[in-house]
Amino acid sequence: MRKLISIILLGIVATGLFMSISQIPFGEPGERMGDHFIREGVKETGATNIVTAVVVSYRGFDTLGEVTVLFTAAMGLGAVIGLVRRKKTHPVIEPASLIVYTGCRFLFPVILLVGTYIVIHGHLTPGGGFQGGAVVASAFLLMYLGCRGKRIRENLSRGLESLGGLLFILLGVTGLLIGGDFLFNFLPLGEAGTLISAGIIPLIYLAVGLKVGSELAGIIDHLIENTDELSE
């Protein structure tokens, strides 16, 4: 009986979705907003990467929301794991083999450098704060797996995370005070294609990169270190 009801409900939802979506022409030109971004994007924002121009400049407020979602997720994880831990035992950690250890220590700075490059060049080449931050966090994941016993200083990661969020909000509010819009691009645009150009876009992506990187690294730190006692 319950299965029958759920199948009927599912059918109703699917029909509603199909009815509403089938009216929209798929893949046909005519979305005038996209044309505007492609034609005028570089001129208006100074960023040669149109995706970045849309994410940070035209739709910057949405990005703030996305960053907040990630922050909430990290906070929820910390709360859930914080409930079950606290036995303060130090389990014996098996050291990784010499090859893995050396390889991780060799790769760590390289991956960190790539992540930083992706963050800093977000307005010129594909990539940006989210992607670069994730790459930086994956470097820390590698370090946790290969060189057990090393940890991120928790205060440092939390501080960087707060700094990133604060920088984002401050830039937005400064734009509000100067130009009348949240995240108004108040710095000179400069010459498109050079590293220091596009006004506040690189600064915002730096803030996002700091926030995403330290947050994801903090999640990994929580999962690996604070669940050690649960396993055995």
Partner: peptide
């Protein structure tokens, strides 16, 4: 490429 980077770093690694 932007989405590809995010997918590779988050989906495949993290």
């Amino acid at each position: 490429p932007d989405v590809a980077m995010a997918e590779a770093a988050i989906g495949a690694a993290l």
